[in-house]
Structure formats: structure tokens, C-alpha cells
Design a protein around this nucleic acid. Structure first.
Lengths: 128, 128
DNA sequence: CGGCATCCCATAGGATACTG
DNA sequence: CAGTATCCTATGGGATGCCG
């Protein structure tokens, strides 16, 4: 554990933005995946989760904490350090989540096709 | 296929309201499950999905349709009849969804425990 | 019956600035 | 560093009413 996170592990057009699948709020699923490889610090999580504001990340983490999926540990020292990690319960979610991710990747193009085939007629009142 | 739907299959305190798991919008997951047993009519879906407004149900169905997970068939006749059914793609989602539901049921009490243990201190400005 | 159209409110979530 | 506080907008979703 403890490998550093790939900054691009969740690029802007990541599957979870396209598929009908959501784990909790917008970021919860990605946070869980970020923690898969071991404990992470607050600011460390903000790297792969580009675009998340501190406020929202805090909210998501608190929610995950409240549900017992993630633990929060403060390490005192010269500078403040807080580490987030998956609890056993949180870790048990990885299996089902993998199944969903596998589905998403497998049917990725079908979803895209369906959207492109269906969307064009939606022009509404495009004027102005 | 075609068994009638249990009106209580999604009671107000259903797991999907408690767990961090969401499929698409608030109703998408439940709609998919409703369609598991065969095609359903619009008004038929409103029974187990108590509380969903026509507008929102329409929105959710359109979204699922757009993603190719659900098909919509109009049957002309004396009265208008519209049937919704899972497409093969939609049906392929049932497997992964089952895994999540199984997880939710299995860890149901752990989630509740975590919430009860963590929530009490959150009294805020309870006054008034 | 199966919708749309409209209105309206609660929540999610982003931006920015400040703090221990 | 790891938040908290405040503000603001976009979206979700409910209620009601009308229509083919």
C-alpha cells in the first residue's frame, strides 16, 4: 500500500460521470477508490479529484465517516496532518463497486451510442 | 414474467435511501428493479414508487431511455397504453446491481450503527 | 392514460476568503 | 495543512393544472 495516486485516475470524462451509477454524492465513489491503495491525506485527495473544493471534499469525507466507510486520523506534529483510510466496512464496498466499474467499462460504448442516437432531436427552442 | 408488482417493494425506508449507493437519479435504480419482472405501464410503475410525481417519473424514464437501458413502447387502442421494459443493456445492469443490494442488506445494521454512533453530537443550534 | 408546462422550494456543490 | 464560513448558482424534484 501507499503508492502515490495517479493525478489522472479520474479525468474529467471519467466513466462515473457518464454511467447511471453513483455511490453517494458526486465524489464518494472516487474518494473510496482513491483510498483503495492505502491512507491518504486531505490535500493528497484533492490531486486526483481535480476540481473538488475543500468544502465539498470535507462534506463528502464527513458523510463517509459518518457511515463508517472511512476513518479519519489526526497525526500531531510540526504541521497538521490528517489521514483518511478505508474502514473494513468501506473496504467491503470495493467488491461490488468493482462489479459496477467493470460493467461501466464493458458497456461504455453502448451507452455512448445510445446517447448519440437518441439526443440529436433535442433541439428545443435553440433560437437566440 | 409479468407478475404484478408488490406495492411495498420499495417502502419509505428502503435500503437505497440509507446506503451510499445510487443508480442515476433518485428513482432510476428502483425503476430498473420494477422492470426486472417484465414490461410495466407508466401508471403501474407509480404504485411501488409511491411518492414519485408524474413529471419526475417521466424524467427518470426518459433518462434511462436515452441511455439505452429502458425501452418505451406505445400500444395504440381505446385507451393510451405505454409500456416500459428493460433492454438487454439494462438487463445486464441487474447483475452488478444485485451485488450492491446484497452488500447493502448485508451491512445494513453496520451502517445504522455507524450513523447512530456518530450523529448524536450534531445538535447544532437545536433551539426553537 | 400518459404525458407536458409551469411554478416553486430544498439541496448540492462551486468560489472565495479567513482561521487554528 | 486542514479545514470553516459565507455566498451564490445550478439542479433535483414535488405540486398543480392542462392536453391529446
Amino acid at each position: 500500500m501507499g503508492k502515490s495516486l495517479d493525478p489522472d485516475m479520474f479525468d474529467p470524462v471519467c466513466p462515473s460521470d457518464l454511467t447511471p451509477i453513483r455511490i453517494g454524492d458526486k465524489w464518494a465513489g472516487m474518494i473510496i477508490r482513491c483510498l483503495e491503495g492505502g491512507p491518504r491525506r486531505f490535500s493528497e485527495l484533492r490531486v486526483p479529484l481535480r476540481g473538488v473544493s475543500a468544502k465539498v471534499l470535507t462534506q463528502s469525507l464527513r458523510a463517509l465517516e459518518r457511515d463508517g466507510l472511512v476513518s479519519r486520523t489526526t497525526r500531531s506534529g510540526p504541521v497538521q496532518r490528517v489521514e483518511y483510510a478505508l474502514t473494513p466496512l468501506g473496504r467491503s464496498l470495493l467488491g461490488p463497486m468493482d462489479a459496477l466499474c467493470a460493467w461501466a467499462e464493458e458497456h461504455w460504448d453502448e451507452l455512448l451510442d445510445a446517447r448519440e442516437t437518441a439526443s440529436p432531436p433535442a433541439v428545443h427552442d435553440a433560437a437566440v
